[in-house]
Design a binder for these strands. Sequence first.
DNA 1: TAATTAAGTCAATATGACTGACCTAAATAG
DNA 2: CTATTTAGGTCAGTCATATTGACTTAATTA
Lengths: 161, 161
Amino acid sequence: MTDLNSLLSPFFLNDKEIRKVIELLFFSYRDFTSGPDKILEKLNFGRAHHRIIYFVGKKNNITIKDLLLVLQITKQSLSRVLNQLVNEKFIIVSTGIDKRTKKLSLTEKGKKLENQLSTIQIDKIKRVINKYSEENINGFKEILYDMIETDNKKIFQQIND
Amino acid sequence: MTDLNSLLSPFFLNDKEIRKVIELLFFSYRDFTSGPDKILEKLNFGRAHHRIIYFVGKKNNITIKDLLLVLQITKQSLSRVLNQLVNEKFIIVSTGIDKRTKKLSLTEKGKKLENQLSTIQIDKIKRVINKYSEENINGFKEILYDMIETDNKKIFQQIND
DNA sequence: TAATTAAGTCAATATGACTGACCTAAATAG
DNA sequence: CTATTTAGGTCAGTCATATTGACTTAATTA
């Protein structure tokens, strides 16, 4: 079955080549997160803290509800990590017009950390994609985008509106 | 600073666009692993089990040492998960020519699960990249490859020798 | 023979996630 | 204006994945 598919599929679409893509995703994603991880470790923070800082930085005054929508974790999970960030003054909380809601934003300290973490990843991506054509880079982004599930595509669009 | 960079950089290289790439990687990777996760959950397994099954399937008769090299976790971490897979007969262990080493391979039961899990991810990738040119797909793979750290590039090559 | 290597184990700990139950306060719908 | 829904919080218990550190055994190699 696999043999027949290999014969019928173009080289870049046979199972063996597709498996390489699985591995490339695994290896590249791991190395992509390892840079920030080292800085976070010194602050006794983890990847969860990074994600919160990233998305609060991205969407200033984001509510808890919307942050949960992006992160797709439970509020109990968010709670511990977010409270640490608030207690240590990386994030500041204010009340929304709808007084049930809370708005999260980065403090100066938080912005500084956000910048430090993002710079590592931004520089890495820049270094890599510099070598490629606009055509290739757009293809890269489009393929990644297509790999996102429909509902999450909407969330991606929302945070980039 | 960022403003100036934005003006000087081509559109696809400015920080705002690079941040989208960060998000695309986050969202796509999460959705990429979510399919197998659902199947693993029924077996009371996690992503760690998946990775072991994947790489043992990829490199038949891999030793513990080499598996640790690929996974980059401690042997104590590997131990618990691997023992579960061995106890539940997804993986079989034999002794190497060097009698200090152990060789891991998938049982029929293990191959079946490996296939079930990989098929989800292979099909997803196929569905997505079908729409793209060979040029774009090769670009996609090359960019991912370039994002891997030097030492890990070697490991990627080793498992694909 | 001594040193190194491969593998395993015991113990303690951290992080990030979960479910379930329950609460308060504010907004909104009937 | 009451009833319901929504946003957020909290307590308790659990699980999965990972860590460090210390130590052991057996086999290989220098």
